[in-house]
Structure formats: structure tokens, C-alpha cells
Nucleic acid binder design. Structure first.
Lengths: 375, 375
DNA sequence: AAGGCGGAGTAATACGTATGACTTCATCGT
DNA sequence: ACGATGAAGTCATACGTATTACTCCGCCTT
């Protein structure tokens, strides 16, 4: 029995009447030609009987691997990142890996009284991340964590939702989302891990946004408003750029834009600004579902019926989308699949291969918030 | 340098010109009277210079502790459990503990193609939980996981949101939520860890629900409908019981109930059944915010104005509550604090003390969805 | 001067697993 | 008949840390 109260490989060896090495060989699967099938069977049955599970910590010591990867996300409180974790953890578990999560520290807000002393920890977390002090084999990093990724220069990493290559750094202050500036994310960029060496998994946000624009155009909309998230991330830049291009391709298409933070109140104000213009748009394209909820409020406050007087679209398809009335036309981004594919890419990277970039298509979900414009 | 590329205590020893033991003593903090202050200083500065962090796996081996706890939740996809994790992980990190998450396996739904071979894992997960195969010091278990907790008979555990004592087992089939049957959760019950030995952290849902009832009664409501979650959990039984008691205490108070699953469509139907009765309620009390969103839909479908014709209340105060129009009157449950307090209790338990039961009060948040009934 | 004592530090070992080096023994080829 | 071959295992060791037992040394006591 180990100090943790679990049976060890030595216990199994005794039970099976063999040596500890043999147990390790059999259970490690590398015994062909070294252990007879009969012995292997008896070892396995002994392990089964005792409910033996190898101590991962001890295994790590020798192997120089922790079979643990770090998932860096800004928060688990937002609705989007839970599924990302779920997908990543599922794939990881299937390969015997564990996942620890690091979140941006200002994720915390509630006051906590923890007078519990507990054993002393002489390794206070110091970096920008509130992360468990783990030894890590690799990092799966959400786009918001680009600069924090620099702490892991030596560690294999995969970026999620950060664009087809890692941006060289934070976009300059004055840069406007949607401005297709040269070198915005060109293949010549050098990420923190070297020239384009960090594998990426992305959503096909451009195609998704184009789908929305074509859906609206097909319904007859021409004056389109964009309630855009004022967040400097690749995904929002890509959304803005794709929408601008798609509307420009529609004869008579006109696009107006208003920026907001990602919360319902700010979105309500931004949408209101568009609705109060003389040439009021007949449709509002929102950068995500929560922003669309704000747009609903702005419309209701002005007595506008959705979708009769105003069509509204969202992005992401979180739970909220079907809770709204009418239900929201949006683009479903497979968040769980993002985590799963990201983890798959990371595991490939860890096993020495160079994973190909992946792009997960979004799916246009047409619900009740879009209709032809009133003539 | 370790196999993982990090400096080891031996590296620090060499840098400081002392032995590895001395490094361990100094950094472990138990060196008073054994190491001179000057040496201690030089060791610490060497550790600083090299960026040394002890390898937790190696430390565990000797100590018989993994400094890791397991958080069992049904899912991280639902909006409620992300904050629970956040709070738990924050407190854990502060004491040098890591948190691994186990979720109910049917949390997975998306198809995943993972042709990645990776190293073989000879410990396939077998239990009901899709959990990382970790060695664990303790378990923090959400109420939905009562029966799974039985797998950890020997492990210190804290239950979250499961009522003041662990129920003896699943409630019998025929049991109706709200029926204050004898022995429902009486102090005589024996949990899986023995007679009431599992510490608990709960929300004050009864007080919260009473607050809602009194708020509505104060506005003048008498005919109240309860759109109840058909989920066999302590928290929902407690909500139903508290509401029934509070309404009974109001002169002329009448309560009707309709059950639904926790999704907007099912809730819409259940709310609709109440609204179609001859003695239509003037207020609908919903078991959570998502159900309230369904109630909004039912009301709109019948041309009822909220809050003019119908008051609606939710429970939990998730993001959705402020995205609805009008914003939802609800009870805020401090989910992050639940995780934090639960982890604090678990750490107390691990250090040999017996934590007192904790109850976190809910807070009534009055927004725009409640008003006096139309006369 | 012999013995004792406390301060400062080191050597040695245990934890549980994985693996390269080694042993044992039967069979095979010549 | 005798070394070579290969199968079936075991031995010994390394991984990085925490801790116990020990050494060394200077100083004090008697």
C-alpha cells in the first residue's frame, strides 16, 4: 500500500508472484517478447483484483513527463469557455492526460474569507496568471492569452481562436478592427515561439459572418448595422472584416458601425445609436449573442418589433440564444470541438509531429429574429 | 535540470554551494535552529536566481499527499458551475493545491475525431465519471454527485449544495418535491461516509425563496404560480417547500404548481399551463433563471405584458437575468463563494479539523420583472 | 584534559514507477 | 557436444524531494 492508501505495483507483483519490474512491463504494454502471455494474464488479473492504478506522480518522475497540460483561458465564468474545457479534457483523458486550468486573475471578484492555514506553500504564484503550480507538458492557450504565452517559451503550445498565425504582438493603439491593414496577420508574422511555429485551431468566423450577411441580403436587407465588440482580438477583427466585405458585395448595401463592450447595457446603448440615425438600419448584426440581447433591449425601448421592424443576428449560439424571445438567428461556433481539436493538435505536437492548422466551420442557425424588412 | 527542463533542488544546492538537503530544509521552512540565517538567505537567493520551483510530483511521492483535490460537477457547460470552479481553484491555489475536475460523462455531445495515437493509457476510466486518473487528497462534490461519491469512501469529502446533511440515498420514485416527508433530510440520516460526517456548504435557498414570496406578497400578489424544476435535488425540494410555506402564510395566498425540465422550451409549456387556468396567477415564481426565460416566452405568446399583467421571478442570477427584457427579479446565489467556501472547508478537513457547516445567504435582486398586479 | 552539548550542516534513504543491463534456461544449428 | 540464440524474467538504478540519522566542530563544564 502506498502512503496514499492505494495498492502499488509492488503489491500487484506480490499478488501475482512476480517481480515489480514484470508488473511494470506488462501493464506498460511493452512486454511482447519479454513476458509470457500466461504471466501477463495473471499480472493483469492481480492488478484488477487489487484495483491497482499507477501513481501518475511516480511515473512522471522517471519519464520526464507529467501527462498534464495547461489550459489558459481568461475565465471559466463566461458561458463560452466551459465547453472548451469540456472538449479538451475529454480528449486528454482518453490519452491519459490531465488538464489543469489557469485563468486570468481578475476573474475573481467575490470576497473570500479563508482563514484556513493549511500547509505552507513557498511558491507563491507570481505571474499574471492564477495558475496551479504544476509541471506541465504543454499549453493550450486561448487567444486572449497571447502575451502570457511568452512565459512558456520552451513549452509546446497550441493557440485557440487566435487567427491563422500568431500576431506579432498587441495591435497598435490606433488600429481599428476591420481595417484590413497590411501585415495584419500575414504569414510573415513571428509569434512568440518563432516564425509561425505555434499550431492553431480557429473558427471559420469569416465564412460564418458571410453566411449571416448573405442570409440578410437574401431577405432583402440593404441598410445593415454592425454592433461590434470593442475588443482587440483576431476573431472580432475577422468578423468585422468579413462583414464589411460581404455587405460591399451586395448592390446597394450600406454598412454602419457602432462599438461597445461585451455586456448587455453597453450593447443596448451602441445599438440605440444606430437605431436613432436618420437612415436607420433594417438589420443589426451583432458580434455575439450577449450583444444581440442588448440590441433587443434597444429595439424594445423604441417600440420596434423583432423581426417585423428590425432583424437582429448574434454570434456563438450560447444558451442565451434560445432563451430570448424571439429566438436568435446566430452562428453556432462549436466551442467544445475547439477544445477537443486543440487538445488533439497539442497531443500530436507532444508526440513529435507538426499538426496542420485546423479551422472549424461555424453553422448558420436561422431562428425567429430575422425576417424580410418591412417595405 | 530536471527531465522537464526545470531546475531542481540539486541545481539550487550547487548554485548556493550547499547540499540538496539544506535547500530542502530552507525552502521547506523548517530550518529554525538547523541552518544559519546567512546560509538560508543565500539558498533563497539562489533559488530565486534560477527560478526554482519544487516539482510537486516528486514532493508527493514522499509525503503521501498529492496536493490535488477533485472537483466533481455534473458539467462545466452550464453557466452555474464555472464560477464554482473559479472560487474553489482560487482558494486551492492560495494553499498550494491544484484542482482537477471530473464531469459527468454525458456532458459530452459533440463528435470528436481524434486519430492521435499518443502514448497508451492502460488505465481506462471505468466509473460513471470521466475523470483524470489522478491521485487525490480530497473531493469537493456537487450535489448531483452523491452516489458517485461512494467511490471515494476513504477520501475526505465536502458536499456542495446538498442540504444540511447528506441524504441517505436517492429519493424514492414517487416522492414529490416539496412534500416535507418525514426523514427527508433529517439529522438522523446516514450519508455514504457515515452518520453526518460529510461537511456541507449550502445556499440559504429557503430564505431566498421566502424573500421572493414576501416581495410578491408585499406588491399585492395572492395567486402565485410555481414553475418548478422536475429535478430530484435537495435545492429544488427546499425551494418548493419554502415557497409553499411562505405562500401559506399570506392571508388569501394560493399556490399552483407546474413541473418542467430545466430548458426554455419545457419551461414555456409548463408556464403556459398555469397561465391558461381559469384562475390565472398574477405572478410566476420560477425555479431558476432559464425557466423564467421560458415563462417570458409563454407570457409573450399570450399577449401578456411583464410586469404589467404578470410578474415573473427567477433564481440564481446568472448572466441571462440581465439579458432579458425586462431584467429579471431573482435571487443571487454566490456560486463562486460556494466553491471558495467549499474548498476552505475541505482544506480544514485535510488538516485534521472538522469544519462547521456553512450556509451562504442568497440575495434578493429586484429588477424590472415584478410589479403590483393589475387590479 | 575528558566529556558533554548545541549549532550547522551533510549523507543516506524512502517514496513508486520505468527501463537498460543482466541472468537463467531451454532449444537449435553444426 | 558445444557455443549461439532467444525467450522469460529479475536486478539495479534513476527520477526529485523530504526527512531522519548522523558527522563535525567549537565551546563550556568539571
Amino acid at each position: 500500500m502506498s502512503a496514499l492508501g492505494r495498492p502499488t505495483s509492488k503489491d500487484v507483483a506480490q499478488e501475482a508472484g512476480v517481480s515489480q519490474s514484470t508488473v511494470s512491463l506488462v501493464l506498460g504494454g511493452k512486454w511482447t517478447g519479454r513476458v509470457s502471455p500466461a504471466t501477463a494474464r495473471s499480472v493483469r488479473s492481480a492488478a484488477e483484483r487489487l484495483g491497482y492504478r499507477p501513481n501518475p506522480a511516480a511515473r512522471n518522475l522517471r519519464l520526464g513527463t507529467t501527462r498534464t497540460v495547461l489550459l489558459m483561458v481568461p475565465t471559466l465564468t463566461a458561458p463560452f469557455f466551459g465547453p472548451v474545457y469540456t472538449g479538451a479534457a475529454r480528449v486528454a483523458a482518453r490519452h491519459g492526460f490531465g488538464v489543469v486550468v489557469a485563468t486570468w486573475p481578475d476573474d475573481t471578484n467575490g470576497p473570500v474569507e479563508d482563514a484556513c492555514p493549511g500547509p505552507p506553500s513557498y511558491t507563491p504564484p507570481d505571474g499574471p496568471f492564477a495558475s496551479p503550480d504544476e509541471a506541465i507538458d504543454g499549453v493550450l492557450a486561448s487567444s486572449m492569452a497571447v502575451e502570457a504565452l511568452a512565459r512558456f517559451r520552451e513549452t509546446p503550445a497550441v493557440m485557440l481562436d487566435s487567427g491563422p498565425s500568431i500576431p506579432a504582438g498587441p495591435t497598435p493603439r490606433g488600429a481599428r478592427p476591420g481595417a484590413p491593414g497590411p501585415g495584419d496577420h500575414g504569414p510573415g508574422d513571428h509569434g512568440p515561439h518563432g516564425a509561425g511555429l505555434v499550431p492553431t485551431v480557429d473558427f471559420g468566423v469569416a465564412e460564418g459572418m458571410r453566411g449571416i450577411a448573405e442570409h440578410l441580403a437574401g431577405l432583402g436587407h440593404r441598410r445593415i448595422g454592425h454592433v461590434a465588440a470593442a475588443v482587440d482580438q483576431w476573431t472580432f477583427r475577422a468578423r468585422a472584416r468579413a462583414l464589411a466585405a460581404a455587405v460591399a458585395a451586395v448592390p446597394g448595401g450600406v454598412l454602419s458601425r457602432s462599438m461597445c463592450a461585451i455586456d448587455a447595457t453597453s450593447a443596448k446603448n451602441a445599438a440605440g445609436r444606430l437605431l436613432d440615425r436618420a437612415d436607420r438600419p433594417t438589420a443589426l448584426v451583432c458580434d455575439d449573442d450577449l450583444i444581440a440581447a442588448g440590441a433587443y433591449k434597444a429595439a424594445r425601448a423604441r417600440g420596434l418589433d423583432i423581426p417585423g421592424d428590425l432583424s437582429v443576428t448574434g454570434f456563438d449560439d450560447v444558451l442565451l440564444a434560445t432563451a430570448l424571445e424571439p429566438e436568435l438567428t446566430t452562428v453556432r461556433l462549436p466551442a467544445e470541438e475547439l477544445g477537443a481539436q486543440g487538445m488533439t493538435a497539442l497531443l500530436e505536437l507532444l508526440s513529435g509531429r507538426r499538426p496542420a492548422p485546423r479551422v472549424l466551420p461555424g453553422e448558420l442557425i436561422i431562428r425567429g429574429s430575422t425576417a424580410p424588412p418591412r417595405t
